[in-house]
Each structure stands twice: as structure tokens, then as C-alpha cells.
């Protein structure tokens, strides 16, 4: 089964993520007491086997990811992906230098990134619940520091149905720092189909 979203549906989905990311930026600003801006996201939908090729030019080395599984009307895996050194810089700036001393992702920094990931992933995927009436519930978030290949390998599951990935590229900006962040929503054809149906019914 091959599934393609029309341009209008892809635009609508990008807008949903944009709303979610702005909500996340507002929450992060509140938590950190700093002004945090999130750029308008760029969105790509591909088969899951293509993710590595699409991300290889954008990220390299060790990667920090926050991973949450989600279930309900649509089900899959949601991952926030940051380059490790950028993740450390982000944690350090957001905590006013309290975490990630000397650029190390210490336990406090990992916890901070877990909370950031939880806020970002929650805000984005709750958008489906609120606007598309596709409520989802989440697992507890987990942080991993690994290579891109290992992380993507953990998303490949044998389910019998084609697995897709929605890649959402954005930038978190605070102070003088701009950090590229990627959200990967891995989900099966049925779940993506449900999102596509819900989008279609709401596009005039």
C-alpha cells in the first residue's frame, strides 16, 4: 500500500505542527524564564526506510533523542532528535549554565532534555487530539545518546503494514544560539491514513 498526502494536506499538517511547536515554545519559555522561538517547520513524509538517507546530510556523529511511543486513534513512535553537542548547549543555556557543564550531557542535562522533548512532542501530537479529534496517549519519555543509525534502527518494526515517517525540521532559538531540531513521527499506513482522512475532512 502506498500513501501520499496531497500538497494541501501536507500544508495543513505542517500548520498543525507549527501550532504545536509554538505552544511548545511558549511552555519552554515559561519553564525556563527565557524567550524561546521556534521556526516555521519544514515537513517531509517518506517511507521509514528512507529516513536515514534524508537525515544523513543534516545530522552527524552522536545524536541525543527523546523517544515517546503514542497510542490511541493513531499510534506510533515520536522522536525529538538533536545533535549531541547542540543538545548540551541547549540544556546549558536553558538552565542558565546549571546543566551540561563543560559540554557533557550529565544526568541533569539528560533530564532537562527529557523534559524539553516531552513538552515538544506532547504539544505537537496533542494537536491531532485537539484539531483532528484523534486523541493520543503517551508512554513515559526516554532519552538516548547514540548514533543516527542505531536510533533509526529502533524505529524499524515488522508490522506487516508499510511504515511511514513524518520528518519535521525546525530550529529552536534562544539567546545567540540556534539549534536544529528534528521531530520524527513514525507510524503505520493505517494511522497515517487516519490523519490524512481527518485533514481532508477539514480542508474546505
Amino acid at each position: 500500500m502506498s500513501l501520499k498526502l496531497t500538497d494541501a494536506e501536507t500544508d495543513a499538517l505542517a500548520e498543525l505542527f507549527n501550532v504545536g511547536l509554538h505552544r511548545a515554545a511558549a511552555s519552554l519559555s515559561e519553564v525556563t524564564g527565557q524567550r524561546i522561538i521556534v521556526d516555521m517547520p519544514k515537513l517531509v513524509i517518506c517511507e521509514i526506510s528512507e529516513i536515514e538517507q534524508r537525515l544523513a546530510d543534516l545530522v552527524g556523529g552522536e545524536i541525543a533523542t527523546v523517544h515517546q511511543m503514542f497510542g490511541g486513534s493513531v499510534a506510533g513512535d515520536a522522536v525529538l532528535l538533536l545533535e549531541q553537542d547542540k543538545a548540551a548547549a541547549l540544556a546549558r543555556l536553558m538552565t542558565g549554565g546549571e546543566a551540561a557543564t563543560g559540554g557533557r550531557l550529565d544526568q541533569s542535562a539528560r533530564e532537562v532534555l527529557t523534559e524539553i522533548g516531552n513538552i515538544v512532542l506532547g504539544a505537537c501530537l496533542s494537536g491531532f487530539g485537539d484539531m483532528l479529534q484523534l486523541p493520543v496517549s503517551f508512554s513515559v519519555p526516554r532519552i538516548h545518546i547514540e548514533s543516527l543509525r542505531t536510533i533509526l534502527g529502533s524505529l524499524l518494526v515488522e508490522t506487516g503494514e508499510t511504515q511511514y515517517a513524518v520528518i519535521v525540521a525546525t530550529q529552536f532559538r534562544l539567546a545567540a544560539l540556534a539549534v536544529d531540531g528534528y521531530l520524527i513521527i513514525a507510524l503505520g499506513a493505517k494511522s497515517l491514513g487516519r490523519i490524512s482522512d481527518a485533514l481532508r475532512s477539514r480542508i474546505p
Binding site: 519553564v31 536553558m94 538552565t95 546549571e98 533530564e111 523534559e115 496533542s126 496517549s137
Partner: peptide, 23 residues
Amino acid sequence: HAAIAAIERAVGGSVVVMSQAFH
């Protein structure tokens, strides 16, 4: 205060993390 707000969000259906460095 942030803890009560976080528990309210969880009662609303969200999973919430409260890291030591922030809270």
C-alpha cells in the same frame, strides 16, 4: 505551584516530566 499545574495536566491525560534543573 508548577507541580500542581503538572499534576492537573496529567489528570487531563498528559505524561509530564519535571526535571530537577528546571523545577
